[in-house]
């Protein structure tokens, strides 16, 4: 696959900061649960100089099937994603987990189909998580946003360990006016979501998320941010169940200055 990496590198160099065409992979959870994150992503990408399109034939990245060992369905879904996102300079998702799925796992799915494997490889190389894309590829140094108060940040596992998303959200958050970040001591420890894990092993998941939101409360931060809706729904669900007052938001909402709607799990005022 040598020619791909060479091509990919040349491509990145020529397109950096020059109005690239970006396909937004909305992700199923954002689509269904929190469309505002999708619109925040579009705003951030457009502000950074990208032309954003949202291909219609997208649904899910296939992780539920993949992590349950269902390879035939995973391949069917992956094929659809590969088709839908052909022809974009970059594919960006407001999720480290879904971007990680495409980036890390798609190519190996098609070990027996060289042609699809090549296309998967091609897609893999240009797929990014939103915030790291803004900083690492588009060179964004700051955002025009304001949020009065203290926040803490949870590093979602796939983004952190598969894609190296760690410094980028902190860098952009530091430019939000009025915002102060209190680090979460257990920021790199899983919240207990794990896709189907939280349904299959609810007792263990509960222990993990309880520890997590206890740590969150101990920071005293008014708002909890993260870059993945799965983790956010899990943590928000526990925070609300325990009656804590911490607001929960996707980091993109804050960076795009679109944090005016209720937090995750909060009612309409």
């Amino acid at each position: 696959m040598g020619e791909f990496s060479a091509e990919g590198a040349a491509f990145m160099a020529s397109n950096t900061k020059t109005n690239p065409k970006v396909g937004l992979f909305v992700t199923c959870l954002v689509d269904l649960y929190r469309p505002s994150v999708g619109f925040a992503a579009i705003k951030l990408l457009e502000d950074a100089g990208c032309t954003v399109e949202v291909p219609d034939a997208q649904t899910c990245c296939g992780q539920p099937a993949f992590n349950s060992g269902d390879l035939p369905d995973t391949r069917a879904i992956a094929r659809q994603v590969i088709d839908a996102f052909e022809g974009f300079d970059y594919v960006v998702a407001p999720s480290g987990s879904c971007a990680g799925m495409i980036h890390e796992h798609y190519p190996a799915l098609f070990a027996d189909e060289p042609e699809t494997a090549q296309r998967a490889q091609h897609l893999s190389k240009r797929t990014h998580e939103l915030v790291s894309f803004l900083v690492d590829v588009m060179g964004v140094e700051g955002v025009d946003a304001k949020l009065d108060g203290s926040v803490t940040y949870h590093d979602s596992c796939s983004g952190l360990r598969e894609l190296g998303v760690k410094a980028q959200p902190r860098k952009l958050l530091s430019t939000v006016k009025g915002l102060s970040l209190t680090e979460l001591p257990s920021a790199e420890i899983c919240c207990g979501f794990g896709g189907t894990f939280c349904i299959k092993y609810p007792d263990i998941s509960d222990k993990m998320v309880t520890d997590k939101v206890t740590d969150v409360a101990a920071t005293g931060a008014a708002t909890l941010l993260a870059g993945d809706l799965g983790c956010l729904l899990n943590m928000a669900g526990k925070i609300k169940r325990l009656g804590h007052t911490t607001k929960v938001r996707h980091v993109a909402e804050v960076l795009a200055d679109m944090a005016d709607q209720p937090g995750i799990g909060d009612g309409k005022a």
Partner: peptide, 30 residues
């Protein structure tokens, strides 16, 4: 803004609330 219990989601709502979706999907709104 949340559900205390939901049919077919017992594994989830046994230990945590289910945050409510915002309403329309992204693709509808888009």
């Amino acid at each position: 803004g949340k559900f205390k219990s939901l049919p077919l989601a017992g594994g989830w709502t046994k230990v945590r609330d289910m945050p409510a979706p915002q309403g329309k999907t992204f693709h509808q709104l888009y």
